[in-house]
Design a protein around this nucleic acid. Structure first.
Lengths: 343, 343
DNA sequence: GATTGGCACTCACGTACCGTGAGTGCTACC
DNA sequence: GGTAGCACTCACGGTACGTGAGTGCCAATC
């Protein structure tokens, strides 16, 4: 029975591979011809019947071959023992392409295009989360007498700015002091740590200046915490409709809609593993979203190399995607992205 | 004959309207039934034959009704005498929605979503061009001993940052001086004006410090001038595939590809009028791009209210789009966007 | 000269109707 | 458990045909 099971998994794998390659339901005969399974079509048919009973494959109609189900793809992915690395030239191309980036926007933009091109699917890159990034610098700029521009710059190179309206006119000296103290206190810290320095910072100023200090601190924390400040960029949506591919017949609309809703993507991304190394795969209904039941989502985290992810990167494609290849590409781009940000 | 021509234009208009509404070739009988043209189908048929000779309409096949050609849509658009304004509630909704934005990214994001929703098409918004925006502030931040972070902030709220690597170690005092002088010299100016202040600024520093001054000025000018720094955001691509609409049969791929190529969009946008008020329409082949021959592009400029556009905003849809409605929506969003940025 | 009613003609579209063949499930046999 | 044989199913592609919307043209009319 165990040997039997092994072969059945092999049959499932063969079915997935052929279906991914040909986009056509695969029959028992074609299977033995294209794979060295060592048994006859009739035997394969029995295995297929068993796989169908188990819900791993299905027939589009009675007299057709079999097609993997969500559950079948799931087993296929779970049984992949290792992700084969990309080839040397590919890796070098990735590294070279990312190295030329001039700033964070450019890094993210290049990464997402690169991943879209490598996978021939839709690529998704989440900007380094503000709340999880360490601050590099806080800049205060007086704009007129009663407005203060607060600019946050993170270690990952993200820049965010906000204007504070003040009740009292600005004293340039206090601003200078506050800027200096704030940077000493805040540099290298992430949002979660800010609470601990807050009181110290307040106490360092005379009571008269505290409203300003409070206002600035409030805006900093608010900006870092703001859910809406999570940003996501996409590339390769054209790949969904590529070459007249009928992967998504008329159902392309819902997919695009889902992808455009950053909220949806964010929820999906945040559902996945938090660490930097694991490549997570969500197949069909596992995405918990109506528009994405005919897609799979392959993601992994990236960061600055210290193990905890600062954001995520991923690829969305049809259920019948090249899982091993996509997983390898996603992992590779994430690694080089991490490296670029850390460097 | 002149009267004849008038009616023919009326017939063309009726054909465009019906075809836009029904997506089906329109015949002579349906035309007289749905529009008060005051003549019989046979007369209409004569007019249609004339319009077809003129290249304004065409028949998909012999026994079908007529469909407008690019040239037909062009005449239709050219004969629109005025753009009807949006309704009061619509305008208030736009204003209210844009007012809540917290920063430039948010303003742009809201504008593009809004326009996509109003037109049920793809919306395109170009970020305020760096080179055409006046600078509000330049910030210099020492990062380690030999790196200087240069942050540019424009009047329109755009923030751009770049790191300069220096040959000599930084002198904090020189940085402070440079920051102060730079801001005095540069505030309120656009790229084109920078050349005029450059020498003055250099001369104000002792020769020893000039390499630093030069490096900073170079990076500022380079950043402002960089073609690649033009940014464009899209929304509503899902609308292209909406409701199983067969507007773009299998040709949706090329359209998405074209829209993803920022270079293509930039060229298109820059081809159009420079002023802030005019609404420009590009129909089909007028877009000069293979992927967009089945689309029309309606754009206008926006700015900070002084008449010269700082960037453009537009909507892309099928040839059979609601031109008057789209033009009104584009113009309205552009106006409120300008107002928001100026305020 | 423009407009109209009449009329023959065209042709996409939908429906119905096979023939074909890939693929299956089942059963008997090794 | 694996295999060979066989009857059965059914999507798919091709052909044939009736239907009707729409046209172009012509002669009659205003």
């Amino acid at each position: 029975m165990a040997q039997n099971d092994d072969r059945r998994v092999a049959v499932l794998r063969a079915i997935v591979e052929d279906y991914v390659a040909t986009r056509e339901p695969v029959g028992s005969r074609a299977l033995v011809e294209r794979h060295a399974l060592g048994v006859s079509p009739a035997t394969i048919r029995n295995d297929m019947a068993a796989l169908e009973d188990g819900g791993y494959i299905a027939q589009p109609h009675t007299s057709a071959g079999r097609v993997p189900t969500d559950k079948g793809y799931r087993l296929f992915v779970d049984r992949l023992d290792d992700i084969k690395p990309l080839s040397g030239p590919e890796r070098r191309a990735i590294a070279a392409f990312l190295e030329d980036a001039v700033d964070l926007d450019d890094v993210v933009d290049r990464s997402v295009r690169l991943l879209a091109q490598l996978t021939h699917q839709v690529a998704v890159v989440q900007y380094p989360s503000l709340r999880r990034s360490a601050l590099r610098h806080v800049e205060l700029v007086a704009v007129g007498a009663r407005h203060l521009l607060v600019v946050l710059i993170t270690r990952t190179g993200r820049v965010e700015q906000r204007t504070v309206e003040l009740e009292a006119p600005l004293d340039e000296l206090v601003v200078t002091q506050l800027r200096a103290r704030l940077n000493v206190a805040v540099a290298g810290r992430v949002l979660a740590d800010l609470g601990t320095v807050r009181e110290d910072l307040r106490q360092a100023f005379p009571p008269a200046d505290r409203p300003l200090v409070d206002a600035v601190l409030a805006v900093v924390e608010e900006t870092l915490a703001l859910e809406g400040e999570e940003r996501i960029v996409l590339a390769g949506t054209a790949n969904l409709a590529r070459g007249g591919s009928p992967d998504f017949g008329r159902s392309l609309g819902p997919v695009l809609e889902a992808l455009e809703e950053q909220v949806v993507l964010l929820r999906l991304l945040s559902d996945m593993a938090e660490d930097e190394a694991t490549v997570t795969v969500r197949i069909g209904r596992e995405n918990q979203h109506e528009g994405l039941v005919e897609t799979s989502f392959v993601t992994t985290g990236y960061g600055t190399g210290d193990g905890s992810a600062v954001a995520r990167i991923g690829s969305v494609g049809p259920l019948r995607m090249d899982y091993p290849g996509t997983m390898a590409a996603v992992r590779a781009v994430a690694r080089y992205l991490s490296r670029t940000l850390a460097g």
